[in-house]
Design a protein around this nucleic acid. Structure first.
Length: 915
DNA sequence: ATCCTCCCCTAC
DNA sequence: TAAGGTAGGGGAGGAT
C-alpha cells in the first residue's frame, strides 16, 4: 500500500498526477509510463514548521567535518579572489574604479582578457548579469534580435563595445563610453520578440553596430514593446520572462511542491513526527530575493539571466566540411558529451572529498559481516529544464523543454522536458517538430551548461555535507550510504537534503530510501517528481511483484524485448524463471542479475571512488568528408582531443580502439539534419606494449587502423577513438625516465648517450635532422613497421629506404638462418626460453640475454629494475650488437609474440630506439 | 582455462 | 538546420 503525503505548488490548484520515470536526465530511450500516482495539493501560503527551518546539519553530527571543509574552501576561494583583485588594482591606475562590466557573447579581446583588464585597473567584472551590480554591458557582435532583448533587460544600462575599455587603457583615462555604444539596429520588420532569439543566429550584422542615437537606448524595453500583442501564445519573449520574474521578486514566497511517498505507512507510524515535517516542510520557502543567490566560488552575488550560454550565438558553420574547428565546437555544444564527461569533472572538482573517503570502498566490500545498509538515492527532477527555468517561476507550470533549436520543423532533439510537457507526451530524444506536434505551445529553452555545472556543484556540496559515502552517478544523481548515520532517521535526512537542494538551487530533487542501491533507485522512481519514498524490506516483495521488468536498472530496450517475447513483463513473472534458465538464455552474469534484481537483491556497495578504465572521444553528427585530407584533419583533431583528455586524467593507454560509422549501403540521407543515419559500425583495436597519450602516436595508430578498414571517406558518418588498458602517466613517466634511459644507457659511453638524446629529441620535434645514417638502420626493425610508417620513413630518407632494404635482403636471409629469439619470462620463471616464434632482438645472431648481463641478471632472479613485473625488449643496432632497452611495464601474461613485434613498432614510435 | 578482440547493451 | 557522447560491463568466439 502506498501512502501519499501532500505536495505543494503555488500555482497549481488542481490535483496533478505524479508521473514516474526512470530518470530525470533522460537518454534517448524514453522511459516507461507511470505506475504509481500521487495526489498533490495546493498550499501556497503554507509556512514551514520550525523543525524544517533549523539548520539541517547538527553541530555535533559526524558530517560536521565535511560541512566545515566546504565552508572553509569557499572562504579561501573568496579570499583568494579578493586578494587578487586588490593586489591587481593596486598595480593599476584604477581608471575603471566604479565601473563593473558584464560581457555578453563573443568579444575581442576575450571575456577573460577583459576581466583581467578590469581587475588590473580597479574595475569590476561579473559573470552573471545583475542590474544591481553591473554598470556597463560589454558586447562584440549581437544579432538585432538579441540586441533588442539585451536592451530590454539592461533597462538603460550602456551596451558598449570592448574597444571602450581597450582605448581607455591606451589613453590612460576613462573615456566616454558614448561613442562606443552598440546600436541595436532593430529591424523594423521584425517586431516580434521570440524566445528563438536566444538560439544561434546566423546573420550578424556587425556593420550596423556603429554610431547610433542615444535615445534609442533603453527604449526597447519589454513593457513598452508594442509588439507584445502580436506574440503568439506559444512564444514567450525573453523580456517577458524577465519581467514576469521581476513581478514576483519582492512579493510572495517561492514555492515548490513535494510528494512524500511511504511504501508502508504502517511501518512508520512511530515516526509521525518525521512525516509531519515531510507534509509541509517543502511547501514554501522564503524567496524574498529570488534572483540572487550566492555562488560557490568567489562569493560574488550572481543574478542569472535566461541566456544562451549553452547555445551561444555563433555564426560558424557546423559540419566537418565547413568548420575547421568542428571537433572543438561540437563538444562544446553537445549535451551528451556534457553528461558523458561529467564524472571526470566531478572527480577533479571533488577530489578532496574523494581522497578523504577513499578507504570507504574497502570497508564495505565484505558483505557477510556488515550490518544492514541504508541507502539513499537522490535524483534532481528534469534537471536540464529545471536549472534553466529555475528563476522563471511563471514557466514552472507551462510545458517547457530544452533543445538547441526551437525551429518548428526542425530535427533538433529534446533533451529534457518538464512534467507539464511530459503530460502532453513530450519526451526526451524527440525531434522538436514532433514535440511541437504533441504540444503546440511548448516553450523551448536553450541549454545552459555553465548553470548545469554550477547547480551540480551545489548539489554535490550539499550531499557531501550530509554524508561521506557518496557515489556520483551523474551531474544530478547520486547514491548515499547512510548506514553509519543511523542515529538520524535516513528519511528525515533525505528530507533535509532535499530541502536544502531546493533552497540553494531552486530546483527540486526526489529521493528513494531502502536497504540497497537497486531498491533505493526504484523508490526514487516512484517518488518523482519532488517526493521521496521509503521501501522497508518486508514490503519489497509487494513492491516488485507488479513492477515492469523494464523498470529494473540493467534492463534496457533489448533485454525488455527479449523478455516480452517470452511473455515476461513484470518482476513477478520473472521471479518464476529459475536462475539456471536465465543464465542459459542470457549468459551467466546477465542471468544472475535478472534473477537477483527481480527479487530486489543487490549486493553492490556504494563506491565513492571509481577507477577510470578507458578514455575516448566520439563524433557521430555533422561528419561528412569529401576527401582524405578532410578526414585526416578531422582525425588529428579527434586525436588531439583524446590526447588532452588522457593528459587531463593523468593516464596513458595501451589499447587504441578506432570506431568508424559507415553509411549502410542503400541507406538514405538521415531524417536528422547532418545525422549519421543508418550505419554499419566497424571497430578495431591495437595494443601496444607501452602506454601512450602522445598525439603523434595516436594519430599514426588511428590512421593505420582506419586504412585497414578500406572505407571510402565519403561514406564515413562517425568516428570514435578510445584508449583502454590505462596506466598512471606519472608512474609511467617516472619509470620510463628514471629506469629506462638513465639506467640502460648509463653504461654505454657518454657519447652514445648524447647521441641518443639528440636523436630522440630531434625525432620528437618531428624533423629528421640528426637521424642516423641509412646504413645504421636496423632493417629487422623497420620491416615490421606498418607499411605506411615504412613509407613515411622512406620519404624522410628521400626514397632511399626501399633501396636500402632491398640491398640488405640477402644479408637478412643469412642472418635469419642463425637467429635466436628470447621470450619474456613468466613471473618467477628463471629461464629465458627460446621460443623460436619471432626474431626480435638481434642482428648479429646474439640475443639480449647473451649480450647484456645487466638485463639477464635481474631477469634470472625474477627481479626487475624499478619494481616492474616484466621488460619489453627491443633491438639496438649500434655497433651491430643487440641490447635490451627497458621501456616500461608489460603485463605478465601479454601475448609475447605480439608484444615483441609491437614493441619494435612502439619503440620507434616513442623514439627510444637508438640506431 | 584463460585471455583477447569485437561487438552489443545499458545508464546517464 | 544543429551539436546522435562516454564509459562500463558482458557475451560470443577464437587463439593460446
Amino acid at each position: 500500500m502506498l501512502q501519499f503525503h501532500a505536495s505543494f505548488f503555488p500555482d497549481l490548484a488542481q490535483v496533478r498526477t505524479a508521473r514516474v520515470t526512470m530518470s530525470s536526465l533522460e537518454g534517448r530511450h524514453p522511459s516507461s509510463a507511470a505506475t504509481i500516482s500521487s495526489s498533490l495539493g495546493d498550499s501556497r501560503k503554507r509556512g514551514r514548521p520550525d523543525s524544517a527551518r533549523r539548520n539541517p546539519r547538527k553541530r555535533n553530527s559526524s558530517f560536521a567535518d565535511f560541512g566545515s571543509y566546504m565552508a572553509e574552501k569557499n572562504r579561501k576561494l573568496r579570499d583568494q579572489f579578493e586578494t587578487d583583485a586588490s593586489t591587481s588594482s593596486a598595480d593599476g591606475r584604477g581608471i575603471f574604479r566604479g565601473i563593473s562590466i558584464f560581457v555578453d557573447g563573443f568579444t575581442i579581446p576575450s571575456s577573460q582578457e577583459l576581466k583581467e583588464f578590469m581587475l588590473k585597473h580597479g574595475g569590476g567584472f561579473v559573470n552573471y548579469f545583475s542590474r544591481h551590480t553591473v554598470t556597463h554591458i560589454i558586447c562584440g557582435n549581437l544579432p538585432d534580435s538579441k540586441m533588442k532583448n539585451l536592451r530590454a533587460f539592461s533597462r538603460g544600462l550602456p551596451v558598449v563595445r570592448p574597444a571602450w575599455l581597450v582605448d581607455s587603457i591606451a589613453a590612460n583615462k576613462l573615456l566616454s563610453w558614448f561613442p562606443y555604444q552598440l546600436s541595436d539596429g532593430v529591424n523594423e520588420r521584425c517586431k516580434q520578440q521570440k524566445l528563438s532569439t536566444f538560439f544561434t543566429q546566423k546573420s550578424i550584422s556587425n556593420s550596423k553596430n556603429v554610431e547610433t542615437s542615444a535615445d534609442q537606448q533603453g527604449t526597447v524595453g519589454l513593457e513598452g514593446s508594442s509588439s507584445n500583442d502580436e506574440v503568439p501564445k506559444n512564444i514567450i519573449s525573453y523580456a517577458q520572462l524577465q519581467a514576469s520574474t521581476d513581478e514576483g521578486q519582492d512579493s510572495e514566497e517561492f514555492g515548490c511542491y513535494e510528494s512524500e511517498i511511504d511504501f508502508d505507512a504502517k511501518s512508520v507510524e512511530a515516526n509521525d513526527a518525521v512525516y509531519a515535517i515531510s507534509c509541509s516542510v517543502l511547501g514554501a520557502f522564503d524567496s524574498s530575493k529570488p534572483h540572487i543567490h550566492n555562488t560557490s566560488c568567489c562569493g560574488n552575488t550572481k543574478e542569472e539571466i535566461l541566456d544562451t550560454k549553452g547555445a551561444k550565438a555563433s555564426n560558424m558553420p557546423h559540419s566537418t566540411l565547413t568548420d575547421p574547428k568542428f571537433v572543438e565546437n561540437y563538444f562544446k555544444n553537445s549535451r551528451l558529451h556534457f553528461i558523458g564527461i561529467w564524472r571526470n569533472r566531478y572527480r577533479q572538482h571533488f577530489s578532496d572529498f574523494l581522497c578523504g573517503a577513499k578507504s570507504s570502498n574497502a570497508n564495505i566490500d565484505s558483505l557477510s559481516d556488515r550490518k544492514k545498509t541504508i541507502i539513499v538515492h537522490i535524483d534532481m527532477d528534469c534537471f536540464f529544464v529545471s536549472v534553466v527555468i529555475r528563476n522563471f517561476r511563471d514557466l514552472f507550470n507551462k510545458p517547457v523543454a530544452v533543445s538547441h533549436s526551437d525551429s518548428l520543423n526542425g530535427t533538433a532533439e529534446i533533451s529534457s522536458a518538464n512534467y507539464p510537457a511530459r503530460d502532453y507526451g513530450v519526451k526526451a530524444g524527440m525531434f522538436v517538430r514532433d514535440a511541437k506536434a504533441c504540444c503546440p505551445h511548448l516553450v523551448i529553452v536553450p541549454y545552459n551548461f555553465e548553470a548545469y555545472e554550477e547547480v551540480a556543484d551545489q548539489f554535490y556540496s550539499i550531499l557531501h555535507k550530509y554524508c561521506n559515502k557518496v557515489q556520483a552517478i551523474s551531474c544530478d544523481e547520486a547514491f548515499l550510504d547512510m548506514t553509519e548515520c543511523s542515529r538520524d532517521d535516513p528519511r528525515k535526512l533525505a528530507l533535509m537534503i532535499r530541502e536544502e537542494i531546493s533552497k540553494k538551487t531552486r530546483c527540486t530533487a526526489s529521493a528513494g530510501i531502502a536497504d540497497n542501491m537497486l531498491l533505493a533507485r526504484l523508490a526514487t522512481r516512484s517518488a518523482k517528481p519532488n517526493g521521496q519514498c521509503f521501501i522497508p524490506s518486508e514490503k519489497v516483495r509487494d513492491f516488485l511483484n507488479d513492477l515492469p521488468v523494464k523498470a529494473l536498472p540493467g534492463i534496457g530496450h533489448s533485454l525488455d524485448e527479449k523478455l516480452k517475447s517470452r511473455q515476461i513483463q513484470s518482476c513477478g513473472q520473472l521471479q518464476k524463471i529459475s536462475k539456471e534458465e536465465l543464465q542459459n538464455e542470457f549468459g551467466k552474469m546477465t542471468g544472475d542479475m535478472l534473477w537477483s534484481y527481480c527479487r530486489g537483491i543487490d549486493n553492490r556497495a556504494v563506491k565513492t571512488v571509481q577507477e577510470t578504465k578507458s578514455v575516448g572521444a566520439e563524433v557521430n553528427w555533422g561528419v561528412r568528408f569529401n576527401d582524405n585530407t578532410d578526414f585526416e584533419n578531422f582525425l588529428v583533431n579527434l586525436c588531439k582531443e583524446v590526447s588532452l583528455r588522457l593528459q587531463g586524467c593523468r593516464v596513458q593507454g595501451r589499447t587504441v580502439t578506432l570506431k568508424v560509422k559507415k553509411r549502410r549501403k542503400g541507406a538514405e540521407e538521415p531524417a536528422k539534419f547532418l545525422g549519421c543515419g543508418d550505419c554499419e559500425t566497424m571497430s578495431r583495436s591495437m595494443t601496444i606494449p607501452v602506454a601512450t597519450d602522445d598525439l603523434i602516436s595516436l594519430r599514426r595508430i588511428s590512421k593505420q587502423i582506419f586504412v585497414s578498414f578500406h572505407i571510402d571517406v565519403k561514406e564515413v558518418r562517425g568516428v570514435g577513438l578510445k584508449l583502454s588498458r590505462l596506466e598512471s602517466a606519472d608512474l609511467h613517466r617516472k619509470g620510463f625516465e628514471e629506469n629506462a634511459i638513465k639506467s640502460w644507457l648509463a653504461s654505454p659511453s657518454e657519447k652514445v648517450m648524447k647521441q641518443s638524446n639528440k636523436i630522440a629529441s630531434s625525432l620528437k620535434k618531428g624533423n629528421n635532422e640528426g637521424l642516423p645514417p641509412l646504413c645504421s638502420l636496423d632493417v629487422e626493425v623497420v620491416k615490421y613497421l606498418p607499411p605506411e610508417i615504412i613509407s613515411e620513413i622512406n620519404d624522410i630518407y628521400m626514397g632511399e629506404l626501399h633501396h636500402f632494404m632491398e640491398a640488405h635482403e640477402d644479408e637478412n636471409r643469412s642472418i635469419k638462418s642463425c637467429k635466436r629469439t628470447i621470450s619474456l619470462p613468466e613471473q618467477g620463471d628463471n629461464s629465458l626460453a627460446s621460443s623460436g616464434q619471432a626474431a626480435i632482438s638481434d642482428v648479429g645472431g646474439h640475443t639480449a640475454y647473451e649480450l647484456n648481463d645487466s638485463v639477464a641478471g635481474p631477469l634470472k632472479k625474477g627481479k626487475l629494475p624499478g619494481g616492474y613485473s616484466a621488460v619489453a625488449i627491443s633491438s639496438i643496432s649500434t655497433q651491430r650488437k643487440a641490447q635490451a632497452l627497458y621501456i616500461g611495464d608489460v603485463p605478465n601474461k601479454c601475448n609475447e609474440l605480439n608484444a615483441k613485434i609491437q614493441c619494435r613498432y612502439l619503440s620507434f614510435e616513442r623514439y627510444v630506439i637508438f640506431f
